[in-house]
Structures are given as structure tokens and as C-alpha cells.
């Protein structure tokens, strides 16, 4: 595995694969016997490069499990999941950690930042962990896109929720990962801040060519994505391209039937 993400983007054989990440018959079962819960039922899905995708579904549909397993945070019971052409199920814990560090970016719903580090330190944390210095030109571009201006030296507690989440997205972008997984990134934000963040992510895919996969149950949030995939009862239940909030809402309502 290359340690330079800039180089890997062009040299990886993954270029021939249209997906930044995909799964093959991904199955996840929690517990056993009476308490057995099947979270994913042989899900096979891919997420294209340079696209902002949303995974939608009601609570318990398996959308979070799908994201966690695709991001190498959780293990599949059977099946495979790939980042580029690397099968995560064949990797050791150490290799998974390295993969997360070098090739995946994360945005979480809450508690996204290290409270003791300031904004810019948080953004460069993955590089710090890898013992690399950040690509300064790229970092400048990300910082400009984030638009935090003079607040870069502020601690998270001195930033608003929206600003904190922008720092979190910037952190995911800063190491130029092949794919960013965002887990309900607007779940804790008011609608105005949510809008800002979602636009920022859409902008990042459009202008920076970043791949983003977002898990959400909010149709308004998903409408910012270029593609919405629906999950129900651990299975893929259709998708919409360039969806509007109304279309998604409509689709979600039908899913409830």
C-alpha cells in the first residue's frame, strides 16, 4: 500500500474499477440464537468515484452497519467489501488501521474533534498520526474551501456546531482519501448549518473530485447528494439519481408500506 495518497490516486489499479468502494454479498449478523439480528443480507453495492452518495433508510435498515463495515470499522460476517480493489476482509487489524488512516476519511455525527487541539491541528491530525507533513498547497485549498478564515487557531469549544463540522469535513479532505464516509454529519446541526455543510460536501465532490458516502435519514440532507441509495431490512431497496427532497420523501413513505 502506498503511503502517498496523491500518488496512489493515479497509480492504483483501482483506476480500472469504476467504484471507489464496493461490497459483494456483504452480510452482517449480530448475536446468535434467539438474539440473532441480521443487519445486512448479502448486500452488493458500489459507490462511484467523484460522486456524493447518500445511503438512506429507516432506523434498523442496516445503513449504519453498511457504512461501518465498508469503512473498516466493523467486520462482516460473510461476503466482502472493497476500497479500490483491496478486500477489507483479508486485512489484519493493523492493515485496516493503516487503510483508514491513509485512504479513508471520516465525518461523524458528534464528538468529531479532539477538544484539546485547535481547528488546524485537528484538520492535519491524520497526517500527524501517519508522521507525514501535509501537502501544503492542498491544505491551503481545503482551508480556503472550508472558509474558517481567522478561526483556524480556535479550539473546538470556541467554534459553533456548524463550524466544528466544517473542520471535521476539512480533516477528512485534508489527507486526500479515496473515499469519505460521513455518518449523519448534520444530525446535531440546525437547518442552516446543515445546509452549509451539505453544500460544502457537494462542492468538494464537484470541484475537488472527492468521493463522499453519507449515511442519513434526513431527505433534505440526501437531496444534496448526486445519488441516494435506499436500504430496508438489510437489503438494497432501489436508488435515485440527483434526487429532490420531495422524491426522496415520497420514496421513503412508500418504503414504510
Amino acid at each position: 500500500m502506498s503511503s502517498d495518497p496523491a500518488a496512489s490516486a493515479s497509480s492504483l489499479p483501482g483506476q480500472t474499477v469504476p467504484f471507489a468502494a464496493h461490497t459483494v454479498a456483504a452480510t452482517k449478523v449480530y448475536g446468535s440464537g434467539d438474539t440473532e439480528v441480521v443487519a445486512l443480507r448479502a448486500v452488493s453495492i458500489g459507490f462511484e468515484r467523484g460522486v456524493f452518495s447518500a445511503i438512506m433508510g429507516p432506523s434498523g435498515s442496516g445503513k449504519s452497519t453498511l457504512m461501518h463495515t465498508m469503512a473498516g470499522l466493523d467486520e462482516l460476517t460473510s461476503g466482502s467489501t472493497f476500497v479500490g480493489d483491496v478486500d477489507l476482509t483479508t486485512l489484519s487489524e493493523k492493515q485496516l488501521t493503516q487503510l483508514r488512516r491513509d485512504r479513508i476519511g471520516f465525518v461523524f455525527q458528534a464528538f468529531n474533534l479532539i477538544p484539546t487541539l485547535n481547528a488546524i491541528e485537528n484538520m492535519t491530525l491524520p497526517m500527524t498520526l501517519a508522521g507525514r507533513s501535509p501537502d501544503q498547497a492542498w491544505l491551503d485549498e481545503v482551508v480556503r474551501t472550508v472558509g474558517l478564515g481567522d478561526r483556524l487557531k480556535h479550539r473546538p469549544s470556541e467554534l459553533s456546531g456548524g463550524q466544528q463540522q466544517r473542520v471535521a469535513v476539512a480533516r477528512a479532505l485534508a489527507s486526500r482519501p479515496e473515499i469519505i464516509f460521513a455518518d449523519e454529519p448534520t444530525g446535531n446541526l440546525d437547518s442552516r448549518s446543515s445546509g452549509e455543510i451539505l453544500e460544502f460536501m457537494a462542492h468538494a465532490t464537484a470541484t475537488l473530485g472527492q468521493t463522499i458516502v453519507m449515511v442519513t435519514h434526513d431527505p433534505a440532507a440526501a437531496s444534496h447528494a448526486g445519488r441516494a441509495v435506499f436500504l430496508a431490512d438489510g437489503q438494497v431497496d432501489g436508488e435515485l439519481r440527483s434526487p429532490s427532497a420531495e422524491a426522496i420523501l415520497d420514496r421513503m413513505k412508500r418504503m414504510g408500506d
Binding site: 488512516r101 461523524f108 479532539i114 477538544p115 491524520p126
Partner: peptide
């Protein structure tokens, strides 16, 4: 815990 887990999620090794 959550802070440390976040470090792990974004790629910190257990040793780090």
C-alpha cells in the same frame, strides 16, 4: 473513550 476511539477510527494505531 469517544475521543480515543475517534483517533483510532481516523487511523491511529493502538500503539499510538
Amino acid at each position: 473513550t469517544r475521543e480515543l476511539a475517534m483517533l483510532r477510527a481516523i487511523g491511529a494505531f493502538p500503539g499510538q
